[in-house]
């Protein structure tokens, strides 16, 4: 099989005396959903920010397409094809759906905004996700939490990414909205993208992930095949009841 899309080898990150990540291994293939789970302060979001170019590793190697890379900035991450949706996503409440999707990347034709093309593309991104937002000119403040999450995911498609990292996309959503978001994750997988799904909710992760990686106190604590591992196996790795040696 080909090299993984993204691979982290023995990556570490320190904040003063705090070991946020210690010798962490991690990989994602195209068309694969990896669930990244762990307790608070396990290092999940630190890993996401490192992949997104926000933090630099203090040790270890990041490989993309099998080649070592450095990701010095968020722009560099997008350039590689890595798009991230953070927990506090950067959407503007007072602007409409299309403006949010193209925020900071507006399409111009001879110096003017090409609103028609942006609207057409937005509709295309949303329909690729099987999303149900009828009016693209509605302000974000008029959408439900689930629909906003969907706009945040659609926003990643503008850069035509190969890997999408979602940090807690189902936190504080109703069941129906969770269903929508998990549906979007399935669609991203069908489109052949690699997906990293970071979540506290083991049920949501196991519903869509192919593999579940557990972090505990910044270290790997188990890698599970999502179709065979039980809820209890994963939970005991999260809580530290079982310790897993590095492979």
């Amino acid at each position: 099989m080909d090299a993984p899309l993204l691979e982290l080898r023995a990556v570490s990150k320190y904040f003063g005396g705090v070991q946020a990540l210690v010798d962490v291994d991690f990989s994602v293939r195209a068309g694969e959903v990896i669930g990244l789970v762990g307790d608070n302060a396990a290092g999940k979001s630190t890993l996401a920010r490192m992949v997104a170019g926000v933090y630099q590793p203090d040790g270890g190697t990041i490989l993309f397409d099998g080649r070592p890379v450095v990701i010095p900035s968020a722009q560099a991450a997008l350039g590689l094809g890595i798009a991230t949706v953070f927990q506090e996503f950067a959407l503007v409440e007072s602007m409409d759906v299309v403006s949010n999707i193209f925020l900071g990347r507006e399409l111009m034709t001879s110096g003017l905004l090409d609103t028609q093309r942006m609207e057409g593309l937005s509709r295309d991104y949303l329909s690729r996700l099987n999303a149900r937002i009828p009016d693209l000119r509605i302000r974000l403040s008029g959408l439900s939490a689930g629909q906003r999450q969907c706009v945040a995911i659609a926003r990643t498609l503008v850069t035509d990414p190969r890997l999408v990292v979602l940090d807690e996309p189902t936190a504080s959503l109703s069941v129906g909205q969770t269903a929508e978001v998990l549906g979007h994750v399935e669609r991203l997988r069908e489109l052949g993208l690699g997906v990293v799904l970071i979540s506290h909710n083991l049920g949501d992760v196991r519903a869509v992930a192919d593999r579940v990686e557990v972090l505990r106190h910044g270290r790997n604590n188990g890698s599970f095949d999502a179709s065979t591992a039980s809820y209890e196996d994963i939970l005991s790795a999260v809580t530290g009841a079982t310790r897993h040696r590095r492979r």
Binding site: A179, A207, Y231
Partner: peptide, 14 residues
């Protein structure tokens, strides 16, 4: 209509 993906061996209560 709504479609909700479920985990393997999902439990009846949840």
């Amino acid at each position: 209509r709504q479609h909700l993906p479920l985990p393997p061996d999902h439990r009846d209560d949840t």
